[in-house]
Design a protein around this nucleic acid. Sequence first.
DNA 1: CTAGCCTTGACT
DNA 2: AGTCAAGGCTAG
Length: 430
Amino acid sequence: MHESNSQLGQSNSAPAVLTDQAFKHLLDDFETYNYNKKLKKSEPKYNFGKCNVCGDRATGIHYGVPSCEGCKGFFKRSVERSDEYVCYYGYNCEITPKQRKRCKYCRWQACLRGGMSLDSVRMGRISRDERDKIIRENNKACSASDSSTDSASPRSTPFALDQNANFEHKSKTFHQSLLNSVNIKTSNYFPGVDIISMNQSCVENGLLTLSVLRDKCYQIFLECNYEFDHVHYEKAVKLAESGGRPHEHFSSMCKKSIIERFLPALQKNIKTSIDYIRKLPGFGSLSHKEFEHVVIDRIFLVITLRVAKLFIDGEFYLFLDLDEGVYFSRTIMNKAYGPNLTNDIFEFLDKFNQLKLTDQELSVFIPAVISSIDTVNSDELYNLNVYYKKLLSYEFSLKKRDNTFMDKLKYTYDLLSDAMKRNREVDLEA
DNA sequence: CTAGCCTTGACT
DNA sequence: AGTCAAGGCTAG
């Protein structure tokens, strides 16, 4: 140890003598060499820190973020397959190296939240500066979330993502790539909205990520539609199977007494539908006046779409009195609405059900439809509509719906909105 | 399906 | 030539 200094002095003339320092380096190098050899290539020369998704050791910058081999592969497979993932544990799973296999849904959300993006796909090396920057940002984000997150609670739910500005920034490009991948030209179906040519700022302003908004819409739909989708639906299916007859004695009642009889049921449906609309992202922050417009203009449509699946084999099993099993049969609807509107509604329900929209699509279709009001001049509502139409396009692209489907949907939707318009005119006359 | 390792090819 | 990410391959 002490000899090293004296050796240093002799080193200029004598053959190179190994100093302690140099020896130590050599030893380190040798150890590292052996260690790397032992672990083959699994130990990288460069420390990429933790995986942005699960916290495992990152093996490089994959899809834009430091990530491990597992999450890299998972993201790739997910994109390739575009399968629908579902969480069976409450949409709030902690994604750790050990638990990441448990829930694909939450892992996928963690990938997006971590900033993984197809947009970042790149071959070859990135500059040292850029690489360091990404890792620095990642470390910063990690320490920030470490300090702000209660260690007992897992990651935030996917629905809280809109509060994460960092995520939005990172996934902005992901929005764009998703939007670019949508092959349906929306403007053909929804005039004025062409998401493909939509400018970047529109994308940037759409603060919620599409996938998060989509999940939220679906979640709200499931919550709010529980009674129709389960209580009503199960009873409806039984009745339809047993060929149950509607309560024909109501046909002898006049319109007024029919409406009086079922007013509480109608009011309840209206109320739950208003609650549903208010819960939809963006609608809650509309002004009182705007919200009122939406309700007046679209409440009937919302109810119809919510209960569409109660139309079974040509009959409409929306129960007006669950205990007595009285439902809004064609006969009763005829009495209440008159034959024209009744026929229109029944034709719509028939055609609409043939389209076999999934609940997920429906949950996005409804806000898109009710925000498209042209009778009121509201920027807020307009922006909301732009976003929901984007979301709808995204949803349809995920479901790989083609143009024929879009044609049919447009045609079917027109049936109902025309019928509603006609009905409003009749109301105004009356 | 997962994830570690390998090959390919873009980039410095 | 060296580096590094994407994607392929495959045992588990």
